[in-house]
């Protein structure tokens, strides 16, 4: 039997070895961060200014957690950073969830932020409310916009507490520009931002933005170009930039070195794979 050349062996490498190298690579960078400089993108600045403008008008910020635990790594820190920014600037926040798991995602983000003694002054019911999830997907959003938020959520919040005791929820009768200043959807799939475009933004004129996982950004750009989305917070990188803008570097900033060097690693593998492929092809000829 003919002995395999170096490149033939390289091309037949066990995928588990690649997995192991990636794991070690990521672990090393996570444990020893390099601190690469993070440049603020235009999209992140626009998103940041949305909250800043609401601080001037005192209008309500409506957040929808349209994702599950799988996207927590990218979207969870976005909600936390937005809540911090809103609380710092005195912007009232109402949260809800189009996804069944989203109510818990929002609750976790809110609890993480409220654990910080800096936000001891935040009163649940007055400054922030988590309406949670109600079955119906787009129908819930539509009803909140056209009918009544209280009735849509059966008069209770995520934990089953009566909304009657929450002034913020009682004042926000509808998901409509008369009661809400801006809506942000954190989405990792469907239903997501387009539901708000169809049922809230277009019929009522309420301005909206999205926080989105990195791989879905191209799809969201279409809506921004059409003027339907004001801002897009793109993935963990956008979130890291936002954390720097609000002067509270957190989880997303921590992941940037891993993302950067992970991309370099993938690029090197693409090059190596192609060199190997060309060499083995030449040898075969």
């Amino acid at each position: 039997m003919e002995e395999q050349t170096f490149w033939q062996k390289m091309m037949a490498i066990d995928r588990r070895i690649i997995y192991a190298i990636l794991f070690v690579f990521v672990a090393i960078v996570m444990l020893n961060p390099i601190g690469l400089p993070i440049e603020i993108s235009r999209d992140t600045e626009i998103y940041y200014n949305v909250v800043e403008e609401l601080a001037e008008t005192g209008e309500v910020l409506w957040l929808d957690a349209a994702f599950g635990p799988g996207s927590w790594g990218e979207l969870g820190p976005m909600i936390e950073a937005t809540l911090r920014h809103a609380f710092d600037r005195g912007v009232p926040v109402i949260g809800m969830a189009m996804w069944e798991q989203g109510g818990r995602m929002f609750a976790t983000a809110l609890n993480n932020v409220l654990e910080d003694p800096q936000y001891d002054h935040i009163e649940y019911g007055e400054d922030v409310v988590n309406l949670g999830f109600r079955p119906g997907g787009a129908g819930v959003v539509l009803r909140s916009a056209t009918d009544d938020v209280y009735e849509t959520f059966r008069g209770v919040d995520h934990d089953g507490n009566p909304l009657d005791d929450m002034p913020l929820a009682m004042q926000t009768e509808r998901l409509h520009p008369d009661y809400v200043g801006h809506a942000v959807v954190y989405e990792s799939g469907s239903p997501g931002g387009p539901v708000y475009v169809d049922y809230v933004h277009e019929p009522t004129g309420l301005e909206m933005s999205v926080g989105i996982i990195a791989m879905s950004v191209p799809g969201a750009k279409v809506y921004q170009d059409a003027g339907q989305y004001v801002g897009i917070l793109p993935g963990a990188t956008g979130c890291a930039q936002y954390e720097l803008l609000i002067d509270h570097p957190g989880y997303a900033v921590m992941t940037q070195d891993v993302i950067s060097l992970g991309m370099v690693f993938v690029t090197l593998l693409i090059i190596l794979g192609n060199v190997g492929w060309l060499m083995t092809r030449q040898q075969a000829q």
């Binding site: 995928r15 635990p69 593998l269």
Partner: peptide, 27 residues
């Protein structure tokens, strides 16, 4: 259970992408 399993499923994509980049992405 559900939350870590969901996160783990999503995180596994990174490993598959890395492997695919090496084995499949050919010019």
């Amino acid at each position: 259970l559900f939350t870590p399993i969901g996160s783990a499923m999503f995180a596994l994509i990174a490993f598959y992408i890395t492997s695919a980049a090496y084995r499949v992405f050919r010019v």
